[in-house]
Design a protein around this nucleic acid. Sequence first.
DNA 1: GCGACAG
DNA 2: ATCTTGTCGC
Length: 229
Amino acid sequence: MEFKIPQSYKAAIAEQRKLAQNVCIEDEEILLKIVAGVDVAYSRRGKEAWAIVGIVTMEWETFQPIEFVHAICPVSFPYLTGLLSYRELPVLIEALNKLQSAPDLWMFDGAGIAHPRKIGLASHFGVLTNSVTIGVAKSRLVGEYEEPAIEKGSVSPLYFNSEQVGVVLRSRRAVKPLFISPGHRISIEKAALLVLKACVRYRLPEPTRAAHCYVTEVRRKFVERGVEA
DNA sequence: GCGACAG
DNA sequence: ATCTTGTCGC
């Protein structure tokens, strides 16, 4: 599988509008055995900026890691609000091609349909690869909400353009809440339930957290020794 | 024009 | 996201 970067921002936005039509937030029967977490880090080396992506797959329920893969590419697109996909998908697809295990569910650092055009990174990846995905953002991109109660598991709906696009979830007692939205082929309710189940000890759910720790480690080595593979 | 703004 | 030390609170 490959990924083409649009020639202009305008083209990127047009493509998002088109892809958004294919996003599905209906639940379906999924046999959840393997869950994947994805995270991206950046590093400057000389004049070049590099993107480093890490994917960790783990067993559902126990969250025992199965596989770790990463990829490092020069950054090919600037960070622009709402267009994060075009910055992170190229390197993400690289890592995806190295993956042996087949995840039944993916959790991303970023938005799903809680996005200006309802196609954040998680939804975009889901549509491209036809997989079940959830967006787990650490802060708000769009939408209005009431602060959820302080207890773990408290949720509050996230609305955008008069419709619910996700939930704001308190993943641990008294921590900053997470912004959960369906990526693809899953409902808001189920997405929230699964993320909460994956929050066993930290603010971030295990898959995303494992990916973050992993990518941080890969980045450290990259900075130190310039290791790429 | 002003403010908001995933990573 | 990245650059950075110590520090306050559950």
